[in-house]
Design a binder for these strands. Structure first.
Length: 576
RNA sequence: GCGUCCGUGGCGCAAUUGGAUAGCGCAUCGGUCUUCGGAACCGAGGGUUGGGGGUUCAAAUCCCUCCGGGCGUACCA
């Protein structure tokens, strides 16, 4: 909010100097050091180059043309041509007031109607044949956060879970079902037993055991060709798998607008291949049907020589379906970065098909690694199931909750608190890291509750709330009072400025689809609040006006933290 | 081989995409409490941003080169 206002003032001062002022306005930023003021404008240097004048002269020229006295102290020139701005208390107070009065959005504006997009967010996408594991958490948690943030920003968001319910892994399941199934175990826990036979087959294929590998491919091809027996088996097995997955989503508190798995697109695949051939986009090579790309040796295969379709075929069908059905401006697909080449190929093919008016983005993220630096497995070679991870998170949280409980929570309240804290810790661990980096799996790290963690923020939130309950404050009356915001103490001022950066943090996070920008902001906000909390007594403030003002700052802080965490898919607690 | 991503205090990571003295968490050491929740706060030590060269008023960021690593590289997803 601050930034937009400053930008409009600078825009006025810059008119006539360049054709396009927008890139220059981007160079107005929060100062990293308080001694340089609150914000700094860095456009004089690049502009000086264009005008071939000394940068300090250009800076001076900008400052002279700048009408900004109502917002800040006289701008200061520094270094090669930085323009440093220190905001006036009244201006900050006015903006804080606006945010306070904005019930749902806390002063964050929605995107302009012209910029409003329809965005398909494709995330999670587990293979239904095997239990979900830690690797799926990244796609699920990051996708969920981005979808929420985009929605809050004012975009039309369509979430779609592209289940892996039709690929070669099903050939393995079918083969395993026929040859290795323990019926008693299957009756008892179908998914666990299916995943056991899946692992057996998988291992044999990897050995490699050519006979079994061929048999698996044959089962897959039969399924895809419509073989009645295999289809029947698929239909028998699938509901068990999806039930299992749904249970986990429920626990993670995640839902989708659509769950259109690979099998949904199967009827369209032949058409896709025909279309690609017909338009001369694909051709036959070594018995397979392929799309080749300029300057690249490896093609994307859309039909194998045995007639079966592939990942790429399904994904093209998916793009076509989404374009027809949803008419999106953007399609975001969240997967592991190891699939980068595939998506380059897919998007290039989509453009060849004429879909060039849509943003197609592969939102990639790093791999979850074990301590050996290899993709994560337990000692026995299994992946860590998501459910056991959730259990662990909650039980660790419960221990901490019990140790620290001073509020006298009931047993049920303790459990619910632990659930929110444990789940929040896990979610936050994923979101707070730059998504493109790999990370080494560790319970301690994932479930940490000190430092830059969800728990720290939840704690900050609970502390704010406790002020209101302790003081028996009527929040509605307080908000409606229209009381003056006073920002004379440095900690009050710093907190207010941080609160007003919420919309900037969101915009920045969405620009690169990076939730960690938002977590960093929230952490900073919680820090500022802690400093404020230490230095500025609220209930025992020196006079009534200061007390009211501080209560309002507390209120806005609590609401901002709550909203921010909510956008990340993390719940808050009133007491902990 | 080719493509691609990466290398930042002991460890784990940031750095608003080229901006001022590279920040934060953990760990280590020291300090703060008769005040609203100590799951807190304040401070200290620790860095030639893998090496070298270049572009620029300005480089962790861009270019070249070398070293080290991850991933991908035709019928898995």
């Amino acid at each position: 909010m601050i930034l937009e206002i400053l930008q409009s003032r600078f825009a006025a001062a810059l008119t006539g100097l360049v054709d396009d002022v927008q890139p220059l306005l981007e160079l107005i930023r929060p100062s990293q050091d308080p001694k340089f003021g609150d914000f700094q404008a860095n456009m004089a240097m690049p502009l000086a180059k264009k005008l071939s004048k000394p940068p300090r002269d250009v800076a001076k020229q900008i400052v002279d043309a700048l009408d900004i006295d109502d917002l800040c102290q006289p701008p200061e020139l520094a270094g090669p041509g930085f323009i440093n701005l220190r905001l006036k208390e009244e201006f900050l107070a006015e903006l804080v007031r606006k945010s306070l009065d904005d019930e749902d959005r806390l002063g964050v504006p929605e995107v302009e109607p012209a910029d409003r997009k329809t965005v398909v967010v494709d995330y999670s996408g587990p293979n239904v044949a095997k239990p979900m594991h830690v690797g799926h958490l990244r796609s699920t948690v990051i996708g969920n956060a981005l979808a929420k943030m985009l929605r809050f920003a004012g975009h039309e968001v369509i979430t779609d879970n592209h289940l892996g319910d039709w690929g070669t892994q099903f050939g393995m399941i079918i083969y395993g079902y026929r040859n290795f199934l323990d019926w008693a175990a299957y009756e008892k826990n179908p998914v666990q037993e299916l995943s056991r036979v899946y692992r057996i087959v998988r291992q044999k294929v990897d050995e490699p055991n050519k006979e079994i590998a061929d048999a698996v491919l044959a089962e897959t091809a039969k399924l895809h060709a419509g073989d009645a027996e295999n289809l029947k088996l698929w239909k028998e097995v699938l509901p068990n798998c999806t039930d299992e997955i749904d249970r986990i989503y429920k626990r993670l508190n995640i839902s989708f607008d659509y769950v259109l798995g690979e099998s949904f697109y199967h009827p369209m695949l032949q058409g896709v291949v025909d279309e690609l051939l017909q338009k001369g986009i694909a051709r036959e090579s070594e018995g397979a049907v392929c799309v080749f790309f300029d300057g690249q040796e490896v093609p994307m295969l859309v039909r194998k020589k045995d007639g079966a379709f592939l990942y790429g075929t399904t994904d093209i069908a998916t793009v076509e379906y989404r374009m027809k059905e949803f008419k999106p401006d953007a399609i975001l697909i969240l997967t592991d970065f190891r699939q980068s080449l595939h998506f380059e190929h897919l998007f290039a093919t989509a453009r060849l098909l004429g879909y060039d008016n849509v943003e197609l983005s592969h939102i990639k993220f790093g791999t979850v690694l074990g301590e050996d630096g290899k993709p994560f497995k337990t000692r026995s070679g299994d992946t860590v199931g998501l459910e056991s991870l959730l259990d662990e998170a909650e039980s660790r949280a419960l221990t901490v909750v019990k140790e620290n409980d001073k509020a006298g929570l009931s047993e049920a309240e303790q459990r619910e608190t632990a659930r929110r804290i444990g789940l929040g810790a896990m979610t936050y661990a994923d979101l707070s890291q730059n998504r493109e980096s790999d990370y080494v799996f560790s319970y301690d790290k994932m479930l940490a509750m000190n430092g830059n963690t969800a728990t720290y923020m939840q704690y900050a939130y609970a502390r704010v709330r406790s002020i209101f309950s302790k003081g028996e404050i009527d929040i509605d009356a307080l908000r409606k009072s229209g009381a003056t915001i006073i920002l004379s103490a440095p900690a009050e001022r710093a907190l207010a400025i941080e609160l007003l950066k919420f919309d900037d943090a969101l915009r920045h996070a969405l620009r690169d689809y990076r939730p960690n920008v938002l977590t960093a902001y929230l952490f900073e906000l919680a820090n500022r609040y802690s400093t404020f909390f230490e230095n500025c007594p609220v209930l025992k403030a020196e006079d009534a006006a200061v007390r009211t003002s501080r209560l309002l700052l507390c209120d806005l802080t609590a609401r901002t933290i709550k909203k921010g965490l909510e956008l990340l898919g993390i719940e808050t607690v009133e007491r902990m």
